[in-house]
Design a protein around this nucleic acid. Structure first.
Length: 873
RNA sequence: GCCGGAGUGGCGGAAUCGGCAGACGCACAGGUUUCAAAAACCUGCGCCGCAAGGCGUGCGGGUUCAAGUCCCGCCUCCGGCACCA
């Protein structure tokens, strides 16, 4: 007798189904008009943030979000949706180029190899992508359209050359956009950066600031993410006010303020050291001091100006300004003009009116340099000492409090006393406008998008520099491809490596005259700002994406990815979508309806007594303890990022090799809520593997001699009512949980069902196991498809409809309720579901009779089908 | 400093609308099977207590018949912003 075991073996069933799905194009998503398209179906667009294919290969963090969208995609298909679920590669960028410099391999070559690795790794995980739609941003067929879109931006006046100061990173040999610089250091590599004036291409995203802000309201994004974008856009409403400079007839000093109502308290002015007016107004006696200060400010790195320079510094220019609220001969209105580096030249007008009574920075500055602090408020909080301090200008006040009686012009044309803050602002602005001294003004913190890099591995600009200026490369000559080069060393300021490709740079313009190609390239975020559009129509050679295709698929219904793109990629994509909308080429104004940020997958690491992290190679488990392999010292477990240095990086290939893709998918979803960061615990992985084994065992006998499925599953029979109820409950729970992306609890519900079904295994019907396989399919598609096939399910499980829930199966005839006395559970009792109150109370009283003895019940609370609470005396 | 988010057994986590805290999984303990199992299965498992019972969701208050959940004041951790006028 042969004893061939039929154990759950992902190593055979997973490749089998992956091949099957691929060979039959099972997950192809037809566009309107294509064969197989069903206009009766609703659409669903589930998108992952496509990866940058690094040399390190897939990380366990990647499949987390990808599994989540795959579950939703498979579920939506089962619910009758036409699902677009594509994957591609964000393939231009710095790491490939850095690697190329180190190894002297062409970035195109390493990129191709990395993509091949990523594709293979992703395909091993059984994601239901429509691989026909695969795209890569470094592919000329793709970036032809990136260049084409850039031309539309240019034509609409949204792309321009600028010489304003930009972030320059010496170590990376390129300039960087604002969101790529954090505290004066590069986001990638943490290298110091500094501001330098260089010719750059810039996109006028600020033209869209208001719409980017307003349209956030309608999006199904987390509040925290919307807040991040709102703060990045940084809208401030206030006024611009003109001050005359005393002794410089006709010279006006314009400032921006959000508190025009505090103009009465302006006691000095501050200009940014770089402000253009400094040279004009500085008095001879102060010139040396001012020049020295400006020089010092210019040589300070941005780090020193932000991180270290918390103490206020500045220099008096010797000039005075005239406060427009006061008469020219009123000495109160004549205030000194200083320069200080706490005022930033690029924000507002680069100059402020300082109101120390109402602004903490100005207060601190006044305090440092002994400048007057005129009180302008008369608070009545009840704290007499505090009120007096504020009134006297001894303390700064930024809250809304009443204005002091002297906040009025001499002629009474403006009186603030008695007004609210909002009204005070309004009145002051009206007063200024009437006299031509200022206007209401909205300012944004958002700056224009620095859109060029001095690097090789990016999209070339479709731009020629001719003797007449800028000339665009005609659409029919796109793409402008990169020249082949063997040396990608950054060329330094302001030259990109492309300057060395002389034959490429030197070309001819439309009139046949000599011209030079633009040697800067586009930033990494260029290609990713519209890839979700290309996925809708990836092979179109006439358009970047047909209007019909984007009208059908957009917006993305679910977009999952990490929070690191909160202000960069997500803002840029929204911007490009709006521009393409305004150009009449895209119907929607927002690309991503629902956005969900996955958490980070962390790892355990171990610390010694000094708090130093011990590499995993030196960590050993002995008995119940974790100790240092050499010293034997007891170690403390901590949760941290996965890092090569600690040796705690989990490789998904190894997990798939040992347990299979279904286990990896399931474990990543079971670890905890998708949005949370949580540590990978290798010891937890076998738990979900065991669950899959038990699921397998529901259908498949241990030994092959008993057949490929259990005998009692070979034909249909009546469903066991208890198991049937349990199954309906599970379907209900799993459906609801997928809808709210709570995959961990959906899996727990399936575990409960399998545990129950295992105990009554021979009572299971074929229909029940088939429906369970349908439930499992989005999570563990290979195993589920295999069970479906063995049980003779109709067609492919991937195309099967989601099982129906019979609502009546969700209620029991009887239900157990808790009986509390004074809020503590003292008993339990079975009562009929939805029983009348008096029946429940009678049963409850009986259940806690001993507790109620000798006491008076003063109140009875009945929560239907849940509990009874007796309040006694 | 400001703005978000979080803090629940030995561990990951559950409790969706103020209604039985600890679902599910891991680890651990005991058992069955076994030549032996690291495999499979069964049972137990918040803490204190022999028990009755008491205590328990970061800490201190409060609202309520009832609080992990709501309110006030703190502590810690994570993320973002950081002289933006």
């Amino acid at each position: 007798m042969s004893e061939q075991k039929q154990t759950y073996d992902p190593a055979t069933i997973e490749p089998k189904w992956q091949q099957f799905w691929r060979d039959r194009d099972v997950f192809r998503a037809p566009n309107p008009g294509e064969p197989g398209f069903d206009p009766g179906k609703p659409k669903f667009y589930a998108l992952d943030m496509f990866p940058y294919p690094s040399a390190a290969g897939l990380h366990v963090g990647h499949p987390e979000g990808y599994t989540a969208t795959d579950i939703v995609s498979r579920w939506k298909r089962a619910k009758g949706f036409n699902v677009l679920h594509p994957m591609g590669w964000d393939a231009f960028g710095l790491p490939a180029e850095q690697y190329a410099i180190q190894t002297n391999t062409h970035p195109a070559q390493t990129t191709a190899a990395n993509i091949a690795t990523f594709r293979r790794q992703l395909q091993r995980l059984g994601f239901s992508y429509d691989w026909n739609r695969e795209i890569g941003t470094a592919d000329p067929k793709y970036f032809r359209w990136t260049q084409w879109i850039w031309k539309r931006l240019y034509e609409r006046g949204l792309a321009y050359e600028s010489n304003a100061p930009v972030w320059w990173c010496e170590a990376l040999g390129t300039v960087l956009a604002n969101d790529e610089v954090i505290n004066g250091k590069s986001e990638r590599g943490d290298h110091p950066c500094e501001r330098r004036p260089l010719r750059q291409w810039v996109l006028k995203i600020t033209d869209y600031a208001e719409r980017l802000l307003q349209d956030l309201d309608g999006l199904d994004w987390s509040e925290s993410l919307k807040t991040m974008q709102r703060e990045w856009i940084g809208k401030s409403e206030g006024a611009e006010v003109d001050f005359d400079v005393v002794g410089h007839a006709g010279t006006k000093l314009r400032v921006f303020t959000t508190r025009p109502d505090t103009l009465f308290g302006a006691s000095f002015m501050v200009l940014a050291p770089e402000h253009a007016l400094v040279a004009t107004i500085t008095a001879a006696a102060q010139r040396d001091a001012v020049d020295a200060y400006r020089k010092a400010a210019a040589s300070k790195s941005e780090l020193e100006r932000t991180d270290l320079a918390k103490d206020k510094s500045g220099v008096f220019t010797g000039a005075f300004a005239q406060n427009p609220l006061f008469a020219a001969d009123d000495p109160q209105g004549r205030i000194p003009i200083w320069i200080a580096d706490y005022v930033i030249v690029t924000y507002g007008t680069g100059a402020i009116m300082a109101v120390p009574a109402g602004d903490e920075r100005d207060f601190e500055f006044a305090h440092t340099f002994g400048l007057p602090v005129p009180g302008i408020f008369a608070p009545q909080t009840g704290d007499a000492a505090a009120d007096a301090a504020i009134a006297a200008g001894e303390r700064c006040c930024t809250d809304e409090v009443p204005y002091a009686a002297h906040c009025r012009t001499a002629d009474g044309s403006l009186v603030l006393a008695g007004r609210s803050l909002a009204d005070g602002k309004r009145a002051t602005i009206a007063w200024l406008v009437a006299r031509g001294r200022g206007e209401a003004k909205v300012t944004y913190r958002l700056r224009d998008w620095l859109f060029s890099r001095q690097r090789y591995w990016g999209e070339p600009f479709p731009v020629l520099h001719t003797q007449d200026g800028i000339e665009l490369v005609p659409d029919d000559q796109l793409p402008v491809e990169l020249p082949h080069m063997d040396d990608f060393q950054p060329g330094g300021v302001p030259e990109s490596p492309l300057i060395r490709a002389r034959d490429w740079v030197a070309t001819r313009d439309g009139k046949g005259r000599p011209a030079q190609r633009e040697i800067n390239t586009m930033p990494g975020a260029a290609g990713s700002s519209w890839y979700f559009l290309r996925f809708c129509d990836p092979h179109n050679e006439r358009e970047f994406c047909s209007k019909a295709a984007s009208d059908y698929w957009l917006p993305v219904d679910l977009y999952v990815g990490g929070t690191e793109h909160a202000v960069g990629h997500l803002l840029y994509s929204r911007f490009w979508t709006k521009v393409l909308h305004d150009d009449g080429r895209v119907g929607v104004v927002e690309p991503f309806h629902k956005l969900y940020n996955q958490g980070m997958i962390q790892a355990f690491a171990y610390e010694d007594a000094r708090g130093a992290t011990v590499p995993m190679a030196n960590v050993e488990e002995r008995d119940d303890e974790v100790v240092h392999r050499q010293t034997g010292e007891k170690l403390k477990r901590i949760v941290t990022k996965m890092s090569k240095r600690y040796g705690n990086v989990i490789n998904p290939d190894e997990v798939v090799g040992e347990y299979g893709a279904d286990t990896l998918r399931l474990y990543e979803m079971y670890m905890g809520p998708l949005a949370d960061s949580k540590p990978w615990n290798p010891k937890d992985v076998p738990g979900v593997y065991r669950f899959l084994q038990r699921s397998w065992r529901l259908a498949v006998p241990e030994f092959a001699e008993f057949g490929s499925i259990h005998a009692h599953l070979r034909q249909d029979r009546a469903d066991d009512p208890d198991l049937e109820k349990a199954l309906h409950r599970t379907i209900h729970k799993v459906s609801g949980d997928i809808e709210r992306l709570a995959f961990n609890t959906a899996i727990a519900a399936m575990m409960i069902f399998v545990n129950e079904a295992t105990k009554a295994m021979d009572k299971l019907s074929r229909s029940q196991v088939l429906r369970f396989a349908q439930l499992l399919q989005p999570f563990a598609p290979h195993l589920a498809e295999e069970l479906w096939q063995r049980l003779g399910g109709e067609g492919l499980l991937a195309y099967a409809a989601w099982p129906a829930v019979d609502e009546s199966m969700l209620v029991d005839a009887e239900i157990e309720i808790a009986v509390q006395v004074l809020g503590k559970v003292r008993g339990r009792v079975m009562v009929p579901t939805d029983a009348p109150k008096d029946v429940v109370l009678a049963a409850a009283r009986a259940a806690v009779a001993s507790q109620l003895e000798g006491k008076t019940v003063v109140k009875e609370i009945v929560v239907p089908n849940k509990l009874v609470n007796f309040v006694v005396k």
